[in-house]
Amino acid sequence: MRLILQLLANGLVNGALYAMLAVGFGLVWRSLRVFHVAFGGLFVASAYCFHTLVMRVGLHPAPAFLGTLIFAGFTGWLCEIGLYRPFARKGAASSAVLIASLGAFVAMENFIALAFGNKLQTVSRGLARAIHIGPVILTEIQLLQLVVGFGTIGLLWVLVCHLRTFKALWAMGDQPELIPVLGLPVHKLRALVLVLSTVMAAVPASLICLDIGTDPHVGMSYLLISAVAVLVGGANSYAGWVVGGVALAVMQSLAVWKFSSRWMDLVTFGLLVTMLVFRRNGLVDPQRRVEEPA
């Protein structure tokens, strides 16, 4: 029983990280209808920015974290104006945007490998202090990941529910053609989506780098986790993305109980296929009219 509780706790910690990734990926998917493959590259770039600020510049992790968020916001904005906006202006097909996004991801991954090498880069911080919470033991960093993860998601949730700007981001995914017709600033809104999305990737990227380090090739793995969490939870629901991320992490964690951690990908994609076959619109699917597109 104690083992199950420990695995559930580990799953929740990872769930907080996965949920942030899912929110970051889902925002772009829902608002711009772009399968944002470059998200994986932006995740790795953020992790390396954090590592550089801590290990090379010598900053304390807290200011390095803030610096990484600013860097992430800037790279997200750059991604919009340099990559996606030209395609949007030309009305390019989604497949062309997908290929371009994949190209950007590969370019970022290779550039980082060239600049920093292929080895795992860790942040040296000595032994992590363990904290006992009833029968469960979490490290200091795990606790930080849990609190920052769910705190960030909660904060963004409040903003999404109450600010008109965030309603506009959501609306953009419904009817992109209607946004400019109503006089809404379509380019600013698009840029905001990419900035927010990349910041949402930078938070877990920094926390994961602080915990287990990073290497240039982890981007694809976290990209797939984000995409699966969004599809499992429901592409049209913020709550769905969070539920998808947490469910995926908990299932991966419980899989370790019975199998080896090498089989985590089986859990990830098994869950995806099961959902696509039996519940195509995800776990959280708002009520809709029959003729309304999913």
Binding site: A168, A171, D174
Partner: peptide
Amino acid sequence: SIFPSLTVDENLHLSFW
């Protein structure tokens, strides 16, 4: 010509931008 995932009130509020 409407945003189906928002409420009626939110649709009107967005148009008041």
